[in-house]
Design a binder for these strands. Structure first.
Length: 152
DNA sequence: GCCAACGTTGGC
DNA sequence: GCCAACGTTGGC
């Protein structure tokens, strides 16, 4: 069992969107490192859902990986914002997993709260210059953050 | 809107 | 293979 963090800008795809329609493919990832994390995910792995580029960046809930990686067809669609002309059925390049909604925190665990927690100092999300939209989370981090979420 | 950090591209 | 230019991300 592994743990992950999925980043999304809520104005484009929020946890409320996932609540309305779940499971959904986590598509549009166009960074090789993030893609490799998608490919490493196993069915029943759990993840945090993080809202970025918004008024209060925060972990807002939890998701579960319900289908392991398969080709991201949005990369082949010229109409799609994430179109990649190098990608095709023969050479998919990019991958998705399906994620299902699992929980929405009554009180999100804000980025400020994460930074304020000394035990989370080593978290990849908090690393300088981090921009990956899919990140691994350690089991310890998972437990600490869950405790923060349930304490509020 | 600003700016730092990073990945990618393309000329050489 | 180097590296400058550029585009993107994301917090503030």
């Amino acid at each position: 069992m592994a743990y992950w963090l999925f980043k999304s800008e809520p104005h484009s795809f929020s946890i409320e969107d996932l609540m309305r329609r779940s499971p959904e493919p986590w598509d549009g990832v166009r960074n090789f490192q993030a893609r490799n994390f998608l490919r490493a995910m196993k069915r029943s792995d759990l993840g945090f859902f993080y809202h970025s580029s918004c008024a209060t960046p925060a972990i807002v809930g939890e998701v579960e990986v319900v289908r392991e990686h398969y080709p991201d067809v949005t990369a082949w669609d010229p109409e799609n914002h994430h179109y990649d002309r190098r990608a095709s059925a023969a050479n998919p390049i990019w991958s998705v997993v399906d994620v299902a909604f699992r929980a929405r925190y009554r009180e999100p665990v804000t980025l400020a709260a994460l930074k304020a927690c000394p035990e989370l100092a080593g978290m990849r999300l908090l690393a300088r210059g981090n921009r990956l939209s899919v990140l691994p989370v350690t089991e310890t981090e998972w437990r600490i953050i869950r405790a923060l979420a349930h304490a509020s």
